[in-house]
């Protein structure tokens, strides 16, 4: 059925919460306007952070046939913007505003072969797809990579369901994922669906392109929440508007500019559409481009950035602990 992206907001009642891996909380919701969730779909959730409401997207991991129960599983990411901490605070009986299932990552039935690739908590986007591929007896390999077994949610049940179709890579067991051999296993009629950290997805994307495989057969979803660097607080300046605004670790540059009264244009808020583009006039530090709108060439040029997801940092390695002691990064921009 055609994917729907019409937002219908409804109430979701928390009926179960359960810790299913280190820092991963599974939350089962009963929506007030149930609708069946297609594989690849997600819900948007209004989260409360420091008393203000904000919106986050979470993949639907499980859904009953009639859509009356659905589950999301969320990794607590203390360094990120705070949505996950809110989700981890939920208790049975709590009510929150959620959308009906939204679809940006549809699974196409009919490919010759499938590879599903999940990195870490990205597993949440792939579980429903894998279930459908198994049910229709598709030719599929389900690859699940993580740092250690303790943080890999759903691992045991996936092994039970998918048997030999599931290939597991665990960094601390010395069996890390080798992106090159994974992509080498793809044929011309293989569709690869992936969800995971930006480094993994970028490596797959580059290898996929280098191998000359069909780019539209590479499917991925990003909610714009993964970066090359840990988030640092930085300063954004807009000389024309006379603004100098600190961007906290838990806020996006777009949000900080909006908070300061700038009239900003944007749409997707996840680094896909390019509408929130700002021009970089001056930079002290490095830009952590977290979008998928700009090409590598454009990112290296550091002339523009997608302010909904991308940030400025000082750390040369990406680790927050190695951020420059001499002060935060400063990016001076012009807005549309």
């Amino acid at each position: 059925m055609a994917a729907s992206n019409i937002e219908v907001w409804q109430l979701g009642t928390v009926v179960e919460v359960e810790k299913i891996a280190t820092d991963v909380q599974r939350v089962v919701l009963e929506p007030s306007l149930p609708r069946k969730a297609e594989p690849g779909s997600h819900i948007d959730v209004m989260v409360r952070i420091d008393g203000t409401e904000d919106r986050r997207s979470y993949s639907i991991v499980e859904s009953s046939e009639d859509g009356t129960r659905l589950a999301i599983s969320v990794l607590k990411a203390p360094l990120s913007r705070g949505g996950s901490v809110f989700i981890h605070s939920l208790l049975p009986g709590d009510e929150l505003e959620i959308t009906q299932p939204l679809q940006n990552f549809p699974l196409r039935v009919g490919a010759g072969r499938y590879i599903l690739l999940a990195g870490g908590i990205g597993i949440t986007a792939m579980i429903n797809m894998a279930r459908v591929l198994k049910n229709i007896r598709a030719d599929y390999t389900f690859v699940y990579a993580g740092r250690s077994r303790a943080v890999m949610a759903y691992l045991e049940e996936l092994q039970e369901v998918h048997g030999e179709n599931l290939v597991v890579h665990v960094d601390d067991e010395g069996t890390p994922l080798d992106v090159h051999s994974l992509v080498d296993s793809a044929t011309e009629d293989t569709e690869l669906y992936m969800c995971g950290p930006i480094r993994l997805m970028d490596a797959v994307r580059r290898t996929w392109t280098a191998r000359g495989l069909s780019y539209p057969n590479l499917r991925y979803e990003t909610f714009g929440n993964s970066g090359w660097h840990d988030p640092e607080e930085f300063i954004v300046k807009v000389p024309r508007l006379g603004l100098e605004v600190p961007v906290g670790k838990g806020r996006s540059m777009l949000e900080a500019l909006e908070d300061a009264g700038a009239d900003m244009m944007f749409d997707c808020r996840k680094g896909e559409c390019g509408l929130c583009e700002v021009r970089v006039l001056k930079l002290e530090g490095t830009i952590d481009h977290r979008d998928v709108f700009y090409s590598a060439r454009q990112k290296n040029a550091t002339e523009k950035m997608a302010c909904c997801v991308s940030r400025a940092v000082t750390s040369p390695t990406g680790l927050a602990s190695e951020a420059s002691a001499s002060g935060p990064a400063v990016v001076t921009i012009e807005v549309s």
Binding site: A2, A3, N104, F105, P106, R108, V109, G110, A111, Y215, P216, N217, R219, Y220, E221, T222, C268, E272, C273, G274, V292, F293, Y294, S295, R297, Q298
Partner: peptide, 23 residues
Amino acid sequence: AGRCVSMPAQETINPSATVPSFP
């Protein structure tokens, strides 16, 4: 398959850009 393979005036393709393709 309904997947966008070219998008005008940008160097990348929006990963959400698909139209439903029917069997």
